[in-house]
Each structure stands twice: as C-alpha cells, then as structure tokens.
C-alpha cells in the first residue's frame, strides 16, 4: 500500500509503486483532469504539484509521491477561482483544452514563486506543448493571472 494525499484527501493505494502517478490519478482515483500526452516528460499535459512544486506525473512513480501532498487541476480551487483559472476564462485561452490542465498547473506553480514574471520567465517555466497553438493567449493569461493574484492579495 502506498499512502499519499491528493487534493487534501488521504489515500492508501494498492498499485505497483512503479506505476506513474499519472495513471494512478486517472485510473485509480478517477481524477481525469490530469492528461496523458507523451509519457516521457516532453509535453507537460500531466503536470501536477508535488508538495507545491510542478512535476510531470507521467514520469513520477507512485513511490516518489508516497507521504507527499499532490495537487491536481481538480484541487487547484473549489470553484475555478484560482487567478490562473479566472485569467484563462477572461482571455479565452483554451481551444481543444487537452493541454490546459497542465498549462494551468505550470502557470500556478510559476506564480507561486514569481509574482510578476517577465516574458523570459514565462518562456523558461512554461514548456508545455499546445498543439492548438494557444501560446500567445497563455502568455497573456499568465500576466493577467499575476495581476489578479496581486489584486486578490491587496
């Protein structure tokens, strides 16, 4: 049994500890917001937070998450009120939407450590692939989310 906390809820899982966290979240816990894109840490569709830091869950074995706090897109906020989620709606960012859980988790992790990222900061942190090419709106969304977060705190 592997014990971990996902979105604030404790779980004990009877799965091979080598199973990527991605498939544990999706198939064992039915948290399907985290997506499979490449399986080799290239695209970021599977990005979740492990103790607050962004990780690619497709190459993170379940064992590496043991005893840790996992946050998925479903747990980012209760009501899509996270500044990144609000900015994404405001700027009409998603197209097909498949990569957006990962984009949002990557952006939220960036803003948690950098309240006012520059374009270069965004380029360095946001390496998630989007085949719909939403990059321009993702960039605007990150800047807007930073503004919203500052306003929220003020």
């Amino acid at each position: 049994m592997t014990e971990l906390t996902v979105n604030g809820q404790a779980h004990a899982l009877d799965a091979d500890p080598a199973t990527p966290l991605l498939w544990v979240l999706r198939d064992h816990l039915n948290l399907t917001g985290t997506k499979y894109g490449c399986g080799i840490s290239q695209c970021g569709a599977c990005t979740v937070h492990l103790d607050g830091a962004p990780v690619r869950s497709c190459v993170t074995p379940l064992a590496a998450a043991a005893g840790k706090q996992v946050t998925t897109i479903e747990g980012l906020s209760d009501d899509a009120s996270h500044p990144v989620q609000r900015a994404w709606i405001e700027h009409d960012v998603p197209q097909c939407g498949y990569c957006q859980s990962g984009q949002i988790m990557a952006a939220a992790a960036l803003l948690a450590t950098n309240a006012a990222p520059t374009d270069d900061d965004i380029d360095a942190a946001m390496t998630n692939v989007c085949r719909c090419g939403t990059y321009q709106r993702v960039r605007r969304g990150v800047h807007r989310a930073a503004e919203l977060a500052r306003t929220q705190e003020a």
Partner: peptide, 11 residues
Amino acid sequence: RRLDAPAKVDG
C-alpha cells in the same frame, strides 16, 4: 467567450 472554457480550466 467559449462556452466550453469553464470545463476546460477545472479538469
């Protein structure tokens, strides 16, 4: 704005 965006930002 897209009607499907809310569902695509919360998983």
